[in-house]
């Protein structure tokens, strides 16, 4: 394998970009394909499928046998609001394999006491996320109810096509939110991606139960084929 391919693959992984390393098992050739690259034929179809499923494996094509090693970034969960629900959600999401960050500029909420062993940032989302912006492999959970805090990360997540975007709030609160986001220039389709009311409908009542409903919904968005979700 060409060492430059290894360098490019590692750069993609560091940069949280989805990539597939293709190895030709008949001729020992190697090639790196990024999500969005155009590849025709049987191989192209297999690549599209692999980017969706995340599964590595061998494929037989008209040009021979290939091994596809799929590299997808680890899913992140960014929780806006260091509230009671987040205290339950953050550790549960971490247990499930999410790389979790809780953000709340209100220092009364964002305290070490309430969030031990959680990556907690007491700052505005704009600043807290400047070094690692929301991307397609991020679940954004906005639970402050406060437009001053929630709106920016919601807009940012929808533009970045985050795989899950959920926002807490009554239908009335959400209707107003929809108006604000439309004014901010987001399309109807984009806004419709927000899970609101947030969480799977399991009749959750306590903050812990709501956390379960949110986590289950985020996992479904991650694991289920977008076409079948």
């Amino acid at each position: 394998m060409d060492p430059n391919l290894l360098t490019s693959l590692n750069a993609a992984r560091r940069g949280r970009q989805a990539a597939i390393l293709i190895t030709g098992l008949d001729d020992g050739s190697s090639r790196l394909v990024m999500r969005g690259d155009t590849v025709t034929g049987d191989l192209g179809a297999a690549l599209s499928k692999a980017f969706l499923s995340g599964k590595s494996g061998t494929v037989e094509t008209e040009h021979g046998r290939y091994f596809l090693n799929v590299h997808l970034p680890a899913p992140r969960m960014v929780i806006i609001g260091a509230v009671h629900i987040s205290q339950a959600l953050a550790p549960m999401a971490a247990m499930t394999g999410f790389d979790v960050k809780v953000i709340d500029p209100r220092t009364a909420f964002a305290t070490e006491d309430r969030f031990s062993s959680v990556d907690l940032v007491a700052d505005w989302p704009e600043d807290a996320l400047s070094d690692r912006p929301i991307d397609a492999f991020t679940a954004l959970v906005a639970v402050t109810h406060d437009p001053k805090i929630d709106d920016w990360p919601l807009i940012s997540a929808l533009r970045a096509q985050a795989f899950y975007v959920g926002a807490l709030g009554s239908r009335k609160t959400h209707a107003k939110r929809v108006e604000r986001l439309a004014q901010a220039g987001l399309g109807e389709d984009q806004i419709a991606r927000i899970a609101a009311p947030i969480g799977l409908d399991i009749g959750a009542q306590s903050p812990e139960e709501i956390a379960v409903a949110i986590l289950a919904q985020a996992i479904a968005a991650l694991r289920k084929d977008p076409g079948g979700a």
């Binding site: 992984r13 995340g54 590595s56």
Partner: peptide
């Protein structure tokens, strides 16, 4: 194997690089 395989996020940090074969 029935779910999306995701890499542990490789960072520039040397401790993680030690453990990440690539």
């Amino acid at each position: 194997r029935d779910s999306i395989r995701t890499d542990a996020l490789p960072s520039g940090g040397s401790a993680e690089d030690q453990l990440d074969p690539l």
